[in-house]
Design a protein around this nucleic acid. Structure first.
Lengths: 236, 236
DNA sequence: CCTGCAATTTGCGATAGCGCAAAACCGGCC
DNA sequence: GGCCGGTTTTGCGCTATCGCAAATTGCAGG
């Protein structure tokens, strides 16, 4: 079992309030694994046997309907947990997790969870906060889908991605992992066609620069304005 | 301070795994309050000072945009907690809670939470499960909003309400609290006009019977079929 | 019983965004 | 260097749903 350097993870929200000396004990229960780009980590509906902490890379969590349509639940950034089915009392994974980049994760067997929370109650508290935050984000997303039009939703989605996983460049902020028009559509409840049209529009206004699975926000500030524009505060 | 009969609450999910004898100690920290129909319990954005357990009645949690549009986050049924801002690490309430019926709630000061979870770790675990379940429900809602059309979303929403707060009648299942077309619109991301049109349609097919703030599902089974119909599995 | 208000219904354009199809593009791989 | 497959772009018609406005209804007081 590979030894994980505690200094890499001490400051993560998950371990807030856990004595650094104790960390080792927690990490000992985990194994680490590497997933090459575009590898399934777990599948929606499968028995939940483990929970995960992303160390490097990016993971896409997506939910599929019986008829095959997908939505992106979220992109997991390094330092975040995912696959917490057991902690929230689900026997099966409610979504599919797939690496979008070469990724490295820590994996705990679910069986370790009860023991860990008993020994380190802060883990439960931290996880509660994490899940609570995600719940609020979901509600925000629902609010947006209910009240805003597609262009604004896309603006918000990209700004969030930029904040979460943006790499600063001279020319702007680049989203630091491969993401397609289709993905953005699945995050915002629209179609890849509409996303393409809107990004084309932005590109011709110099707001973004984008290509195959690549997006750079050139004028983040102007995109913020777009995102906050109300339906009637019309453009010229 | 009114004494609360422990027998009323022992079996709630919140208290699973808590010794009945200990319950008293928990309840001692709470006060109870009655809210007449249509009373604000807390407002979105206000300092979160308490968390709540609904004993009787029904509470609507709703989120408002800067421009005044609202969505219904959920309806709280008796036995459920709400206003958990503190537990999930939010300083302010992210939504507004309002009684839709005469309602009775237990209220704990947030300051009691850390002490309670320390003494009864099961509370944190139970709350984590609750919040996790709500997160999954939110994701389901997002999935529906992304992939289904309005009629199906309304069907699902009503079926969920019926399951959660339905009262069985000979003629069908009645939703056990006042709910308007507008409310349903705010649950499904549409307008009261569209809801009205669709319910009118159902009414003329005998699927529902409805009036002012009142809805009875006459043919729940047929509504299930509606809810699950895919866009193309067309009606006659 | 009557009055007034809020909820509901319904008609009628207007339109944002979808869906399909075809073309152009872009890399990566052999 | 050329070929292949997935991604993106774009045109065009279509329609589900919105938005507004007006009429109607039903409950709650007085």
């Amino acid at each position: 079992m590979a030894k994980v350097d505690t200094s890499l993870v001490v400051h993560l929200p998950l371990f807030a309030g856990v004595a650094p000396e104790a960390l080792d004990e927690i990490l000992r229960e985990a194994r680490s694994a590497r997933y090459p780009k575009n590898t399934a980590i777990f599948e929606q509906g499968a028995d939940a046997q483990s929970f995960f902490l992303l160390l490097h890379g990016h993971v896409r969590a997506a939910k599929t309907t019986p008829t095959g349509e997908q939505i992106v639940v979220r992109y997991v950034a390094p330092g975040e947990t995912f696959g917490l089915a057991m902690a929230i009392g689900a026997a099966r994974y409610p979504a599919t997790a797939m690496s979008v980049d070469d990724s490295v994760v820590l994996i705990w067997p679910n069986s370790a969870w009860p023991r860990l929370v008993e020994r380190f109650p802060a883990l439960a508290a931290n996880t509660l906060q994490t899940v609570g935050t995600r719940l609020q984000e979901s509600h925000t997303r629902i609010l947006e889908m209910s009240t805003q039009q597609v262009e604004q939703r896309i603006a918000h989605a990209l700004l969030r991605l930029a904040k979460q996983s943006g790499k600063k460049l001279d020319q702007g902020i680049e989203i630091d992992f491969p993401i397609s028009r289709q993905d953005i559509a699945q995050m915002t409840g629209t179609t890849l066609h509409t996303v393409s049209r809107i990004l084309s529009g932005w590109e011709s206004q110099g707001l973004v620069e984008s290509g195959r699975q690549r997006i750079i926000l050139r004028e983040p500030h102007k995109i913020v304005v777009l995102a906050e524009r109300t339906p009637d505060s019309g453009a010229a």
